[in-house]
C-alpha cells in the first residue's frame, strides 16, 4: 500500500527522462546559440525548408496553377510559357528568376527541388550514421581482428576518389535519387565516421558504469545498444551534418554532369543551361539567372549544414570552446 502511494507521488521514470532530456537540450542549445556560424546555418536551413515544404505547395496551388487557356504552365519539369517570345527569358514579373532554355520557370524549379535535396541529404546521412555508429562502437567494444579490418577499410574509404567512382558507376547503372542516397550512405558509412566514433566509444568503454553494468550481468549487445551508443550519439549527430553536405554536393555534381536519372534538381538546372550553350564563353554574364540561383542554392544549403556541424562541434568538443 505504502509503496504504491510513494510511487504515485513520484514522477514516472518517463517524465523524469523527458525532463532530463529537456534540460540537457536547453544547456546544449545555449552553447550552440553562442556559435554565430551555427545559428546562421540553422536559419538558412529553416528558410530553405519553409521555401520547399510550405511556400512551393502554396504557390503551386494558387499563383502557379495552370491557366485555363493552357498558355502558361509553371510545372518545373514540363512547364512552358507560350506568352514568352524568347527562351531563356530574363527575370520578369511573371517569372521572378526568368525561364530556362525550355521555357520553364527557374524559381519553380528551384523550389520544387528543395525538398528532394533535403530528402537525399538526410537519407544518405542517416544511413551513414547508422552504419558508422554500429561499426564504430562494435570495433571499439570487441577490438582485435574486427577492429583492424574495419579501420583499414575506413582508411581506404577516406582515400577513395568518391566523385570519380560515382561518375564511372553512373555509366553502368541507372542512378536515381534514392539509389544515390543509398550508395553514398553505404560507402561513407564505412569511412572516416567509424574512426571518429570508434575513438569516442573507446573512451566510453573504459568508464566505470560500463564495468558495473557488466558485473550486473548485461550482455554485450545490450551494453553496446543501451550504454555505449547513447554516449557516442552526440558525435554521430555532428557527423550527420557533414554527411548531409557531402551527399547534396555529390548529387549536385553528378546531375550537373547529366549522369543521374532524375527529372529535376539544382545540378540538373545548370546542366540544362550548360548543354544548351548558355554558360559558354561570353554568354555566361548575359544568362546569369540560369546558373547563379541554382549554384547559390547548392552552395548555401551545403554551407548551412556545414555551419551547423561547426556549431555543434563546439557543443560536442568542449576544447574548442572559448572560455
Amino acid at each position: 500500500m505504502a509503496t504504491k502511494e510513494i510511487e504515485g507521488a513520484l514522477e514516472s521514470p518517463l517524465t523524469i527522462k523527458m525532463k532530463l532530456a529537456w534540460r540537457s537540450f536547453k544547456e546544449n542549445w545555449k552553447i550552440f546559440s553562442e556559435s554565430k556560424i551555427g545559428v546562421l546555418g540553422l536559419w538558412i536551413v529553416i528558410i530553405f525548408a519553409i521555401a520547399g515544404f510550405i511556400v512551393y505547395p502554396i504557390l503551386a496551388a494558387t499563383v502557379w496553377k495552370p491557366t485555363l487557356s493552357g498558355m502558361v504552365s509553371y510545372d518545373p519539369v514540363t512547364g512552358y510559357d507560350f506568352t514568352q517570345m524568347l527562351n531563356p527569358a530574363p527575370p520578369s514579373l511573371h517569372h521572378l528568376l526568368g525561364t530556362d532554355p525550355l521555357g520553364r520557370d527557374v524559381l519553380a524549379q528551384l523550389l520544387y527541388s528543395t525538398p528532394r535535396e533535403f530528402a537525399l541529404g538526410i537519407l544518405a546521412a542517416l544511413i551513414t550514421v547508422f552504419i558508422g555508429t554500429i561499426i564504430g562502437t562494435v570495433s571499439a567494444y570487441y577490438g582485435g581482428a574486427v577492429d583492424t579490418f574495419f579501420m583499414r577499410l575506413a582508411d581506404l574509404v577516406l582515400l577513395f576518389p568518391f566523385i570519380p567512382f560515382l561518375i564511372v558507376l553512373s555509366g553502368m547503372i541507372q542512378i536515381d535519387l534514392f539509389r544515390l542516397a543509398l550508395i553514398i550512405g553505404l560507402i561513407s558509412g564505412f569511412g572516416g565516421i567509424t574512426i571518429v566514433l570508434r575513438s569516442q566509444a573507446m573512451i566510453v568503454k573504459v568508464k566505470p558504469f560500463i564495468e558495473s553494468a557488466k558485473v550486473s550481468g548485461a550482455s554485450n549487445p545490450y551494453l553496446i545498444v543501451n550504454h555505449i551508443i547513447p554516449n557516442v550519439m552526440p558525435l554521430s549527430f555532428l557527423y550527420m551534418m557533414f554527411n548531409v553536405t557531402g551527399a547534396i554536393f555529390s548529387e549536385a555534381v553528378l546531375s550537373f554532369f547529366g549522369l543521374l536519372n532524375i527529372k529535376m534538381s539544382w545540378g540538373l538546372m545548370i546542366y540544362t543551361a550548360d548543354t544548351a550553350g548558355y554558360i559558354v564563353g561570353s554568354n555566361i554574364g548575359h544568362y546569369w539567372w540560369l546558373w547563379l540561383p541554382p549554384g547559390a542554392a547548392i552552395t548555401l544549403l551545403c554551407g548551412a549544414f556545414y555551419f551547423i556541424g561547426r556549431g555543434l562541434d563546439e557543443v560536442v568538443n568542449p576544447r574548442l570552446r572559448r572560455r
Binding site: 553536405t245 550537373f256 546558373w291 549554384g295 552552395t299 551545403c302
Partner: peptide
C-alpha cells in the same frame, strides 16, 4: 563549401 562549378562560372 562553395559549389565548385559555381566558383568556376
Amino acid at each position: 563549401t562553395v559549389f565548385t562549378p559555381l566558383l568556376i562560372f
